[in-house]
Design a protein around this nucleic acid. Structure first.
Lengths: 204, 204
DNA sequence: CGCATTATTCATCACATGATGAATTCCGCT
DNA sequence: AGCGGAATTCATCATGTGATGAATAATGCG
Protein backbone atom coordinates (compact mmCIF):
# COMPACT_ATOMS: atom_id res chain seq x y z
CA UNK A 1 0.00 0.00 0.00
CA UNK A 2 1.03 3.59 -0.40
CA UNK A 3 3.89 4.57 -2.67
CA UNK A 4 3.12 3.87 -6.28
CA UNK A 5 6.19 2.75 -8.20
CA UNK A 6 5.61 4.82 -11.30
CA UNK A 7 8.93 4.26 -13.05
CA UNK A 8 10.94 7.16 -14.36
CA UNK A 9 10.55 10.91 -14.34
CA UNK A 10 8.70 13.19 -16.67
CA UNK A 11 5.17 13.96 -17.55
CA UNK A 12 2.57 11.23 -17.39
CA UNK A 13 0.42 10.26 -20.35
CA UNK A 14 -3.14 11.40 -20.75
CA UNK A 15 -4.64 14.29 -18.86
CA UNK A 16 -5.12 13.05 -15.31
CA UNK A 17 -6.58 15.59 -12.89
CA UNK A 18 -3.58 15.37 -10.64
CA UNK A 19 -4.21 18.68 -8.95
CA UNK A 20 -7.67 17.48 -8.00
CA UNK A 21 -6.31 14.20 -6.70
CA UNK A 22 -3.82 16.03 -4.55
CA UNK A 23 -6.60 18.20 -3.15
CA UNK A 24 -8.70 15.17 -2.33
CA UNK A 25 -5.77 13.42 -0.69
CA UNK A 26 -5.00 16.59 1.22
CA UNK A 27 -8.53 16.77 2.59
CA UNK A 28 -8.30 13.15 3.67
CA UNK A 29 -4.96 13.40 5.37
CA UNK A 30 -5.61 16.81 6.93
CA UNK A 31 -8.87 15.32 8.18
CA UNK A 32 -7.16 12.34 9.75
CA UNK A 33 -4.20 14.10 11.28
CA UNK A 34 -4.78 17.82 11.33
CA UNK A 35 -2.57 20.49 9.82
CA UNK A 36 0.67 19.81 11.64
CA UNK A 37 0.28 16.05 11.67
CA UNK A 38 -0.29 15.83 7.94
CA UNK A 39 3.05 15.87 6.16
CA UNK A 40 3.38 16.94 2.56
CA UNK A 41 5.01 13.60 1.93
CA UNK A 42 2.06 11.70 3.35
CA UNK A 43 -0.37 13.69 1.25
CA UNK A 44 1.74 13.14 -1.85
CA UNK A 45 1.89 9.42 -1.13
CA UNK A 46 -1.88 9.26 -0.68
CA UNK A 47 -2.25 10.95 -4.04
CA UNK A 48 0.31 8.61 -5.58
CA UNK A 49 2.57 11.47 -6.53
CA UNK A 50 5.98 12.91 -5.79
CA UNK A 51 6.10 15.41 -2.89
CA UNK A 52 7.72 18.02 -5.09
CA UNK A 53 4.64 18.04 -7.26
CA UNK A 54 2.61 19.28 -4.35
CA UNK A 55 4.86 22.28 -4.01
CA UNK A 56 4.83 22.73 -7.76
CA UNK A 57 1.07 23.18 -7.72
CA UNK A 58 0.47 24.88 -4.42
CA UNK A 59 3.76 26.48 -3.51
CA UNK A 60 3.53 25.98 0.20
CA UNK A 61 1.85 23.67 2.66
CA UNK A 62 -0.28 26.47 4.03
CA UNK A 63 -1.58 27.40 0.60
CA UNK A 64 -2.40 23.77 -0.02
CA UNK A 65 -4.35 23.72 3.22
CA UNK A 66 -6.27 26.83 2.29
CA UNK A 67 -7.01 25.41 -1.13
CA UNK A 68 -8.13 22.11 0.38
CA UNK A 69 -10.43 23.94 2.75
CA UNK A 70 -12.27 25.64 -0.08
CA UNK A 71 -15.37 23.87 1.05
CA UNK A 72 -16.56 21.32 -1.49
CA UNK A 73 -20.22 21.75 -0.60
CA UNK A 74 -22.05 25.02 -0.58
CA UNK A 75 -22.36 26.43 2.92
CA UNK A 76 -25.10 28.72 1.73
CA UNK A 77 -27.35 25.77 1.00
CA UNK A 78 -26.67 24.35 4.41
CA UNK A 79 -27.24 27.58 6.20
CA UNK A 80 -30.43 28.15 4.27
CA UNK A 81 -31.61 24.66 5.09
CA UNK A 82 -31.15 25.49 8.74
CA UNK A 83 -32.68 28.92 8.58
CA UNK A 84 -35.58 27.71 6.38
CA UNK A 85 -37.51 30.85 5.60
CA UNK A 86 -36.24 32.65 8.67
CA UNK A 87 -38.73 30.94 10.91
CA UNK A 88 -37.57 29.85 14.33
CA UNK A 89 -40.12 27.10 14.64
CA UNK A 90 -38.47 23.71 14.27
CA UNK A 91 -35.02 25.22 13.97
CA UNK A 92 -33.64 22.77 16.51
CA UNK A 93 -34.54 19.76 14.45
CA UNK A 94 -33.50 21.34 11.16
CA UNK A 95 -30.13 22.23 12.64
CA UNK A 96 -29.18 18.80 13.90
CA UNK A 97 -30.67 17.15 10.86
CA UNK A 98 -28.58 19.22 8.46
CA UNK A 99 -25.57 18.73 10.68
CA UNK A 100 -25.88 14.95 10.62
CA UNK A 101 -26.42 15.10 6.88
CA UNK A 102 -23.09 16.81 6.34
CA UNK A 103 -21.13 14.73 8.83
CA UNK A 104 -22.78 11.51 7.78
CA UNK A 105 -21.00 11.23 4.47
CA UNK A 106 -17.21 11.23 4.07
CA UNK A 107 -17.20 13.98 1.47
CA UNK A 108 -18.61 16.34 4.04
CA UNK A 109 -16.92 14.87 7.08
CA UNK A 110 -13.34 15.03 5.79
CA UNK A 111 -13.03 18.79 5.35
CA UNK A 112 -14.99 19.47 8.53
CA UNK A 113 -12.71 17.17 10.49
CA UNK A 114 -9.70 18.76 8.87
CA UNK A 115 -10.88 22.18 9.86
CA UNK A 116 -11.76 21.15 13.39
CA UNK A 117 -8.60 19.16 14.04
CA UNK A 118 -6.39 21.85 12.59
CA UNK A 119 -8.16 24.63 14.43
CA UNK A 120 -7.10 22.92 17.65
CA UNK A 121 -3.43 23.12 16.75
CA UNK A 122 -2.90 26.13 14.55
CA UNK A 123 -3.99 29.70 15.00
CA UNK A 124 -4.23 30.05 11.22
CA UNK A 125 -6.74 27.24 11.07
CA UNK A 126 -8.58 28.53 14.10
CA UNK A 127 -9.02 31.82 12.31
CA UNK A 128 -10.26 29.93 9.28
CA UNK A 129 -12.80 28.01 11.31
CA UNK A 130 -13.91 31.19 12.99
CA UNK A 131 -14.44 32.83 9.63
CA UNK A 132 -16.23 29.81 8.26
CA UNK A 133 -18.60 29.55 11.18
CA UNK A 134 -19.16 33.26 11.33
CA UNK A 135 -19.70 34.12 7.68
CA UNK A 136 -20.93 30.94 6.13
CA UNK A 137 -23.10 29.54 8.88
CA UNK A 138 -23.88 31.98 11.64
CA UNK A 139 -24.44 34.91 9.34
CA UNK A 140 -27.33 33.15 7.70
CA UNK A 141 -28.70 31.31 10.66
CA UNK A 142 -28.96 34.63 12.41
CA UNK A 143 -31.85 35.66 10.21
CA UNK A 144 -33.93 33.12 12.10
CA UNK A 145 -32.87 34.80 15.32
CA UNK A 146 -33.59 38.28 14.06
CA UNK A 147 -34.96 40.51 16.75
CA UNK A 148 -34.56 37.74 19.29
CA UNK A 149 -32.84 38.88 22.47
CA UNK A 150 -29.29 37.51 22.67
CA UNK A 151 -29.77 36.14 19.19
CA UNK A 152 -26.07 35.90 18.35
CA UNK A 153 -25.29 34.30 21.66
CA UNK A 154 -28.05 31.76 21.30
CA UNK A 155 -27.14 30.87 17.75
CA UNK A 156 -23.54 30.34 18.77
CA UNK A 157 -24.54 28.23 21.69
CA UNK A 158 -26.46 26.00 19.30
CA UNK A 159 -23.47 25.71 17.02
CA UNK A 160 -21.20 24.95 19.96
CA UNK A 161 -23.37 22.02 20.94
CA UNK A 162 -23.19 20.64 17.42
CA UNK A 163 -19.43 20.95 17.42
CA UNK A 164 -19.27 19.15 20.73
CA UNK A 165 -21.41 16.38 19.31
CA UNK A 166 -19.11 16.08 16.31
CA UNK A 167 -16.12 15.65 18.57
CA UNK A 168 -17.74 13.08 20.81
CA UNK A 169 -19.30 11.15 17.95
CA UNK A 170 -16.64 11.32 15.24
CA UNK A 171 -13.33 12.07 16.95
CA UNK A 172 -13.32 10.73 20.47
CA UNK A 173 -15.92 8.11 19.57
CA UNK A 174 -17.43 7.86 22.98
CA UNK A 175 -20.11 5.21 23.35
CA UNK A 176 -23.07 5.12 23.14
CA UNK A 177 -23.26 8.40 21.23
CA UNK A 178 -20.83 7.20 18.59
CA UNK A 179 -23.05 4.31 17.54
CA UNK A 180 -26.56 5.55 18.06
CA UNK A 181 -28.64 6.05 14.93
CA UNK A 182 -29.11 9.46 13.38
CA UNK A 183 -32.83 9.42 14.03
CA UNK A 184 -32.40 8.58 17.66
CA UNK A 185 -29.89 11.36 18.08
CA UNK A 186 -32.26 13.78 16.43
CA UNK A 187 -35.08 12.75 18.72
CA UNK A 188 -32.80 13.37 21.70
CA UNK A 189 -31.09 16.58 20.71
CA UNK A 190 -33.62 18.49 18.62
CA UNK A 191 -35.94 19.57 21.44
CA UNK A 192 -33.01 20.65 23.56
CA UNK A 193 -31.56 22.80 20.79
CA UNK A 194 -34.98 24.19 20.10
CA UNK A 195 -35.00 25.71 23.56
CA UNK A 196 -32.30 28.14 22.60
CA UNK A 197 -34.90 29.70 20.36
CA UNK A 198 -38.05 29.16 22.37
CA UNK A 199 -36.58 30.45 25.63
CA UNK A 200 -35.78 33.77 24.06
CA UNK A 201 -39.06 34.18 22.23
CA UNK A 202 -41.33 33.48 25.15
CA UNK A 203 -39.53 35.98 27.34
CA UNK A 204 -39.82 38.81 24.83
CA UNK B 1 12.45 35.00 27.21
CA UNK B 2 13.16 31.29 26.92
CA UNK B 3 16.51 29.60 27.45
CA UNK B 4 18.04 30.25 30.82
CA UNK B 5 21.81 30.58 30.68
CA UNK B 6 22.67 28.48 33.67
CA UNK B 7 26.42 28.17 33.21
CA UNK B 8 28.10 24.82 33.37
CA UNK B 9 26.97 21.23 33.80
CA UNK B 10 26.32 19.24 36.89
CA UNK B 11 23.86 19.16 39.67
CA UNK B 12 22.27 22.39 40.82
CA UNK B 13 22.49 23.62 44.37
CA UNK B 14 19.64 23.27 46.79
CA UNK B 15 16.73 20.90 46.30
CA UNK B 16 14.60 22.43 43.60
CA UNK B 17 11.53 20.45 42.61
CA UNK B 18 12.70 20.15 39.04
CA UNK B 19 10.51 17.18 38.24
CA UNK B 20 7.49 19.18 39.31
CA UNK B 21 8.54 22.17 37.28
CA UNK B 22 8.92 20.01 34.21
CA UNK B 23 5.45 18.61 34.79
CA UNK B 24 3.97 22.08 35.12
CA UNK B 25 5.75 23.26 31.99
CA UNK B 26 4.58 20.16 30.18
CA UNK B 27 0.97 20.86 31.07
CA UNK B 28 1.33 24.41 29.83
CA UNK B 29 2.97 23.57 26.54
CA UNK B 30 0.83 20.50 25.86
CA UNK B 31 -2.13 22.74 26.56
CA UNK B 32 -1.03 25.38 24.13
CA UNK B 33 0.09 23.16 21.31
CA UNK B 34 -1.23 19.66 21.82
CA UNK B 35 0.80 16.47 21.98
CA UNK B 36 2.49 16.57 18.60
CA UNK B 37 2.99 20.29 18.57
CA UNK B 38 4.69 20.36 21.95
CA UNK B 39 8.36 19.50 21.54
CA UNK B 40 10.41 18.10 24.36
CA UNK B 41 12.80 20.96 23.75
CA UNK B 42 10.06 23.55 24.14
CA UNK B 43 8.89 21.97 27.37
CA UNK B 44 12.43 21.83 28.68
CA UNK B 45 12.97 25.47 27.77
CA UNK B 46 9.76 26.46 29.52
CA UNK B 47 10.99 24.65 32.61
CA UNK B 48 14.43 26.27 32.27
CA UNK B 49 16.15 22.93 31.95
CA UNK B 50 18.09 20.84 29.49
CA UNK B 51 16.01 18.61 27.22
CA UNK B 52 17.97 15.55 28.24
CA UNK B 53 16.74 16.02 31.78
CA UNK B 54 13.21 15.47 30.61
CA UNK B 55 14.17 12.10 29.26
CA UNK B 56 16.15 11.38 32.36
CA UNK B 57 13.04 11.76 34.49
CA UNK B 58 10.33 10.47 32.22
CA UNK B 59 12.08 8.28 29.71
CA UNK B 60 9.90 9.10 26.76
CA UNK B 61 7.68 11.90 25.57
CA UNK B 62 4.60 9.73 25.81
CA UNK B 63 5.31 8.84 29.43
CA UNK B 64 5.79 12.52 30.18
CA UNK B 65 2.42 13.22 28.62
CA UNK B 66 0.75 10.53 30.67
CA UNK B 67 2.39 11.85 33.80
CA UNK B 68 1.38 15.41 32.99
CA UNK B 69 -2.20 14.31 32.48
CA UNK B 70 -2.44 12.89 35.96
CA UNK B 71 -5.12 15.40 36.66
CA UNK B 72 -4.07 17.97 39.24
CA UNK B 73 -7.56 18.44 40.60
CA UNK B 74 -9.76 15.70 41.90
CA UNK B 75 -12.29 14.63 39.28
CA UNK B 76 -14.31 12.96 42.00
CA UNK B 77 -15.05 16.29 43.63
CA UNK B 78 -16.12 17.74 40.34
CA UNK B 79 -18.31 14.84 39.43
CA UNK B 80 -19.87 14.89 42.88
CA UNK B 81 -20.48 18.59 42.60
CA UNK B 82 -22.36 17.92 39.42
CA UNK B 83 -24.25 14.94 40.68
CA UNK B 84 -25.01 16.63 44.02
CA UNK B 85 -26.82 13.97 45.99
CA UNK B 86 -27.96 12.16 42.88
CA UNK B 87 -30.82 14.51 42.32
CA UNK B 88 -31.61 15.55 38.79
CA UNK B 89 -33.20 18.82 39.78
CA UNK B 90 -30.92 21.70 38.90
CA UNK B 91 -28.35 19.44 37.32
CA UNK B 92 -28.14 21.67 34.27
CA UNK B 93 -27.01 24.66 36.25
CA UNK B 94 -24.67 22.66 38.47
CA UNK B 95 -23.06 21.14 35.41
CA UNK B 96 -22.24 24.35 33.60
CA UNK B 97 -21.34 26.07 36.84
CA UNK B 98 -18.79 23.42 37.76
CA UNK B 99 -17.55 23.38 34.20
CA UNK B 100 -16.91 27.11 34.16
CA UNK B 101 -15.26 26.83 37.54
CA UNK B 102 -12.69 24.38 36.22
CA UNK B 103 -12.06 26.13 32.91
CA UNK B 104 -12.06 29.55 34.47
CA UNK B 105 -8.73 29.18 36.19
CA UNK B 106 -5.49 28.32 34.37
CA UNK B 107 -4.62 25.46 36.68
CA UNK B 108 -7.72 23.66 35.52
CA UNK B 109 -7.77 24.91 31.98
CA UNK B 110 -4.25 23.87 31.01
CA UNK B 111 -4.59 20.11 31.47
CA UNK B 112 -8.08 20.11 30.01
CA UNK B 113 -6.89 21.97 26.94
CA UNK B 114 -3.94 19.64 26.69
CA UNK B 115 -6.19 16.63 26.79
CA UNK B 116 -8.66 18.08 24.32
CA UNK B 117 -6.10 19.36 21.85
CA UNK B 118 -4.10 16.17 21.97
CA UNK B 119 -7.17 13.99 21.64
CA UNK B 120 -7.79 15.65 18.31
CA UNK B 121 -4.41 14.57 16.97
CA UNK B 122 -3.40 11.38 18.68
CA UNK B 123 -5.33 8.19 19.16
CA UNK B 124 -3.44 7.61 22.41
CA UNK B 125 -4.72 10.89 23.77
CA UNK B 126 -8.20 10.26 22.42
CA UNK B 127 -8.25 7.04 24.39
CA UNK B 128 -7.10 8.93 27.44
CA UNK B 129 -9.83 11.52 27.08
CA UNK B 130 -12.39 8.78 26.54
CA UNK B 131 -11.27 7.10 29.74
CA UNK B 132 -11.24 10.33 31.66
CA UNK B 133 -14.69 11.34 30.58
CA UNK B 134 -16.07 7.86 31.05
CA UNK B 135 -14.64 6.92 34.40
CA UNK B 136 -14.01 10.18 36.16
CA UNK B 137 -16.96 12.22 35.03
CA UNK B 138 -19.69 10.22 33.38
CA UNK B 139 -19.50 7.34 35.79
CA UNK B 140 -20.46 9.60 38.65
CA UNK B 141 -22.83 11.88 36.85
CA UNK B 142 -24.75 8.83 35.82
CA UNK B 143 -26.04 8.32 39.33
CA UNK B 144 -28.18 11.40 38.77
CA UNK B 145 -29.53 9.75 35.66
CA UNK B 146 -30.19 6.44 37.36
CA UNK B 147 -33.29 4.77 36.10
CA UNK B 148 -33.79 7.56 33.59
CA UNK B 149 -34.49 6.28 30.09
CA UNK B 150 -31.50 6.79 27.80
CA UNK B 151 -29.59 8.02 30.84
CA UNK B 152 -26.14 7.35 29.40
CA UNK B 153 -27.05 8.97 26.14
CA UNK B 154 -28.45 12.04 27.80
CA UNK B 155 -25.51 12.43 30.14
CA UNK B 156 -23.12 12.21 27.22
CA UNK B 157 -25.11 14.71 25.24
CA UNK B 158 -24.77 17.13 28.13
CA UNK B 159 -21.04 16.57 28.29
CA UNK B 160 -20.74 17.01 24.54
CA UNK B 161 -22.36 20.41 24.77
CA UNK B 162 -19.92 21.45 27.45
CA UNK B 163 -17.00 20.31 25.32
CA UNK B 164 -18.35 22.26 22.41
CA UNK B 165 -18.62 25.33 24.59
CA UNK B 166 -15.03 24.89 25.74
CA UNK B 167 -13.84 24.81 22.16
CA UNK B 168 -15.83 27.83 21.04
CA UNK B 169 -15.01 29.85 24.14
CA UNK B 170 -11.41 28.90 24.88
CA UNK B 171 -9.91 27.55 21.65
CA UNK B 172 -11.62 29.11 18.66
CA UNK B 173 -12.58 32.17 20.68
CA UNK B 174 -15.66 32.99 18.72
CA UNK B 175 -17.39 36.19 19.75
CA UNK B 176 -19.57 36.93 21.59
CA UNK B 177 -19.40 33.64 23.49
CA UNK B 178 -15.71 34.06 24.19
CA UNK B 179 -16.21 37.30 26.10
CA UNK B 180 -19.57 36.92 27.75
CA UNK B 181 -19.55 36.68 31.54
CA UNK B 182 -19.81 33.37 33.34
CA UNK B 183 -23.11 34.30 34.90
CA UNK B 184 -24.65 35.28 31.61
CA UNK B 185 -23.52 32.04 30.05
CA UNK B 186 -24.99 30.10 32.93
CA UNK B 187 -28.31 31.89 32.55
CA UNK B 188 -28.31 31.00 28.89
CA UNK B 189 -27.12 27.41 28.95
CA UNK B 190 -28.36 25.99 32.23
CA UNK B 191 -32.04 25.66 31.32
CA UNK B 192 -31.17 24.09 27.99
CA UNK B 193 -28.93 21.50 29.58
CA UNK B 194 -31.56 20.86 32.18
CA UNK B 195 -33.89 19.65 29.46
CA UNK B 196 -31.74 16.59 28.92
CA UNK B 197 -32.88 15.52 32.33
CA UNK B 198 -36.39 16.88 32.43
CA UNK B 199 -37.39 15.55 29.02
CA UNK B 200 -36.59 12.03 30.10
CA UNK B 201 -38.24 12.23 33.47
CA UNK B 202 -41.53 13.65 32.34
CA UNK B 203 -41.94 10.97 29.68
CA UNK B 204 -41.39 8.08 32.11
C1' DC C 1 7.57 18.60 -37.76
C1' DG C 2 9.70 21.82 -34.16
C1' DC C 3 9.60 24.13 -29.94
C1' DA C 4 7.95 26.36 -25.83
C1' DT C 5 5.22 25.00 -22.03
C1' DT C 6 3.64 22.12 -18.65
C1' DA C 7 3.75 17.86 -15.69
C1' DT C 8 6.50 14.97 -13.22
C1' DT C 9 10.43 12.99 -10.62
C1' DC C 10 15.12 12.98 -8.38
C1' DA C 11 18.62 14.62 -5.51
C1' DT C 12 19.49 17.55 -2.07
C1' DC C 13 19.41 21.37 1.75
C1' DA C 14 18.79 23.26 6.19
C1' DC C 15 16.48 22.47 10.13
C1' DA C 16 13.78 20.39 14.07
C1' DT C 17 12.65 16.45 16.32
C1' DG C 18 13.04 12.39 20.01
C1' DA C 19 16.48 9.92 21.91
C1' DT C 20 21.07 8.24 23.99
C1' DG C 21 25.51 8.06 26.46
C1' DA C 22 29.17 10.17 28.51
C1' DA C 23 30.83 13.84 31.34
C1' DT C 24 30.32 17.09 35.17
C1' DT C 25 28.74 18.77 39.62
C1' DC C 26 26.48 18.45 43.92
C1' DC C 27 24.12 15.90 47.85
C1' DG C 28 23.76 12.59 51.69
C1' DC C 29 25.76 9.04 54.27
C1' DT C 30 29.24 6.89 56.85
C1' DA D 1 37.16 13.16 54.48
C1' DG D 2 35.53 10.15 51.23
C1' DC D 3 32.48 7.81 48.30
C1' DG D 4 28.22 6.29 45.78
C1' DG D 5 24.47 7.94 43.68
C1' DA D 6 21.48 11.40 41.94
C1' DA D 7 20.92 15.68 39.20
C1' DT D 8 22.24 18.17 35.34
C1' DT D 9 24.30 19.42 30.90
C1' DC D 10 26.80 18.59 26.40
C1' DA D 11 27.61 16.48 22.17
C1' DT D 12 25.73 13.63 19.02
C1' DC D 13 22.61 10.36 16.06
C1' DA D 14 19.13 8.90 13.07
C1' DT D 15 14.99 10.36 11.21
C1' DG D 16 11.42 13.24 9.27
C1' DT D 17 10.19 17.71 7.88
C1' DG D 18 9.16 21.71 4.24
C1' DA D 19 11.32 23.43 0.50
C1' DT D 20 14.22 24.17 -3.90
C1' DG D 21 16.40 23.49 -8.40
C1' DA D 22 17.68 20.80 -11.97
C1' DA D 23 16.60 17.02 -15.03
C1' DT D 24 13.30 14.39 -17.92
C1' DA D 25 9.17 13.40 -20.42
C1' DA D 26 4.77 14.32 -22.60
C1' DT D 27 1.56 17.89 -24.48
C1' DG D 28 -0.20 21.34 -27.54
C1' DC D 29 0.43 25.21 -30.59
C1' DG D 30 2.58 27.12 -34.74
Amino acid sequence: MGKVLRGRSGRRRGAPDTKGEILAAARDVFGERGYDGASVRAIAAAAGVDPALVHHYFGTKEKLFLAAMEIPFDPAIIADAIAAGSSGAGIGERAIRTFLGVWGQPSGRAPMLALLRSAMQHETAARLLRQFVTRAILGRVLVAFEGVPDGALRAEAMVSHLIGLAIIRYVVKLEPIASVSDEELIRLVAPVLQRYYDDAVEQS
